[in-house]
Design a binder for these strands. Structure first.
Lengths: 218, 218
DNA sequence: AAGAAAAATCTTGTATACAAAATGCTTGAC
DNA sequence: GTCAAGCATTTTGTATACAAGATTTTTCTT
């Protein structure tokens, strides 16, 4: 990456968009924000470009940049794609994963389990993320891994909301074990299907997600 | 999008990277290129950022930007992801596609067929692209469609190379028909598998692709 | 008073000027 | 002659100044 400063600004703005400081449709004022960050317009505009490429803001020529929060439909679409990408990871990983990585997943799962027992949502969140990152890596496809990370990051605040739901942690946990089992057996189809079901937002979870919009603070 | 000028520059540079004007590892000189395009460094740097986000160049802080052509491994990985994304489109489209879109695909295929008969590679390329764009759209998932378009665009020069191979047009044509047939039957699994096989680069095609690197001019 | 046209203001897009860091070159010492 | 240190040059990153388009306000006409 190029600019330490623009990077930090982009990250900060991203956070503020996620946590609801900026609502959908809000215009981001270059001058105001530049003053706020204590920099000139130049690095700020560079940050804008990154956010635009991530889809978080929309740049309209000669008009300015506007926050673009995903609506229910787009959110569902993103989760659908996430489920498919991760399912692909699982399908590939079932053939490519090694013993050490499998063991790592089991250990991560054990820590997940401990978090469920102690009702430690933060710990669960951390270990759950770790589980998924391992899955991406074990696809053996670096490009796929990067794409997964990108979308994973984008959906972060919404996933967090979901985990808050009662019973979701335990269910998620059980699904993790099914995934590991399928990977152990080298069963590509089963692994893919288990991951798809784990990630997809459907039925009751869809309603829950809808009820939680706009997203709560990180 | 924001900047008409930076956009044009980004596009032009992209073309030059694709067509081999800039080789892997080449440094892109801001001042030189700015003069060449008749603009200042500012819009040029904005163009750089876009290319960096697309993965075409790498920006190293305080060092400059360098062309980053994908190597064989990364290319294979990208095709693998493309195959999966398109397979997902097919799986979803099998349930969601309507009669008018199916008819459109058949007509596009007919024009493909005509292009094969007249050995018109350009026409085939055009209609083949159209076929895939319809598939993306018919997934019924706008986000997925956009992601597919992004990667499709990125792989454009390499796909073009492949079509030049003898017999590939006819084979591709037959695969298109299998895809349409599966979609007509509403057979999600078959449609996904047909598309995966159509897009994936494996066996002999892998060797051909490797032999064609670096990519030839558009 | 209402609507339209024109001017003033504000905001974005671009160019240039300035600052800081990295590279390369020169010079000196061993 | 070679290596290192310091200086000069080049190049990136940032700030500011300038230009052009968009918006708003004001004023004039009907």
């Amino acid at each position: 990456m190029e600019l330490r400063r623009a990077d930090k600004i982009a990250e900060a703005l991203e956070e503020q968009i996620f946590d609801g400081t900026f609502a959908d449709g809000d215009r981001l004022d270059e001058i105001r924000l530049a003053a706020q960050f204590g920099v000139s317009r130049t690095p700020l505009r560079e940050a804008f470009q990154r956010l635009a490429q991530s889809g978080l803001i929309e740049q309209i020529p000669r008009r300015g940049v506007f926050v673009r929060q995903p609506g229910p439909v787009e959110l569902m679409e993103m989760f659908e794609v996430m489920a498919e990408l991760e399912a692909t990871c699982a399908r590939l990983a079932a053939r490519r994963i090694g013993d050490t990585a499998l063991e790592e997943m089991r250990q991560t799962n054990a820590r997940c389990s401990a978090a469920v027992q102690s009702q430690d949502a933060d710990a669960y969140y951390r270990e759950n993320e770790r589980f998924h990152l391992i899955l991406y890596r074990q696809s053996g496809n670096g490009f796929l891994e990067q794409e997964c990370l990108r979308l994973h990051r984008r959906l972060k605040p919404y996933r967090r909301v979901q985990l808050r739901l009662r019973g979701r942690m335990a269910q998620s946990m059980a699904e993790h074990e099914a995934i590991v089992a399928a990977l152990e057996n080298g069963d590509s189809a089963a692994a893919a299907e288990a991951v798809r079901a784990h990630v997809a937002v459907q039925g009751a979870r869809f309603q829950d997600l809808m009820a939680s919009l706009k997203p709560a603070a990180e």
